[in-house]
Design a protein around this nucleic acid. Sequence first.
DNA 1: ATGACTCCCAGTGGGAGA
Length: 256
Amino acid sequence: MRLATWNVNSLAVRLPQLLAWLGENPVDAIVLQETKLTDDRFPRAEIEAAGYRAQWFGQKTYNGVALLSRSEAGAVVHNIPGFDDEQARVIAGVVDGVRVVGAYFPNGQAPDSDKFAYKMRWMTALREWLRAELAAHPALVLMGDFNVAPEDRDVYDPVAWAGQIHCTPEERAQFRGLIELGLVDAFRLFEQPPKSWSWWDYRNLAFRRNQGLRIDHILVGEALRARIAACLIDKAPRRNERPSDHAPVVVEIAPG
DNA sequence: ATGACTCCCAGTGGGAGA
């Protein structure tokens, strides 16, 4: 099966690009972040017309996530159970026997900010929920916009970014905490082009200069590890007119 | 360099993103 994640930075703006991408890149499921739509405005009809079922969980202006899948998702969860959160950041469902968890991690803004403290609390709560979730569903995939560059090789200028948001030791320790649950960073199972990023700032010609970060990830549970056949970042949509600042990440999991 | 761009909601500007 083929799974994907994409931070679309407004589904209202990016819907035509999403449908075009899905037309060229059919997947079994895709999780979206930053839909920025209240639930009443979700473009269900257009997505169903393209052959996908949809689950969505949004709010006004910020955040918002969705899970699109060829077959109906079961056991759908919104946000982290037991973690009181006003922000719509997580959607999970079981698709073809795989527990798919789509997440939009908090940005964190700056290491000394309240938003950073929230990011740390949120990541701790996610980890504890996933520990239980993995016990119930070993065939689990966590994917989304993590807002963490796990290593220096995930940063175009690691010296300039040292200690900055997305690159702090605390965020990287939280990322390792997720790996230690028994998840593997699918992208790093394969040889990849050097300077592979999933996000490029809109400013300063960053995409043209390939100045970016790898902050969108697909983490796969050990039960599926042997079946991971490929993982790639598709830069093509970043070349669109009015692109998202993020590119989709795709994983291929061989039949079990 | 407190910038740059884009989105949103607002309302002729500002917050947030990363």
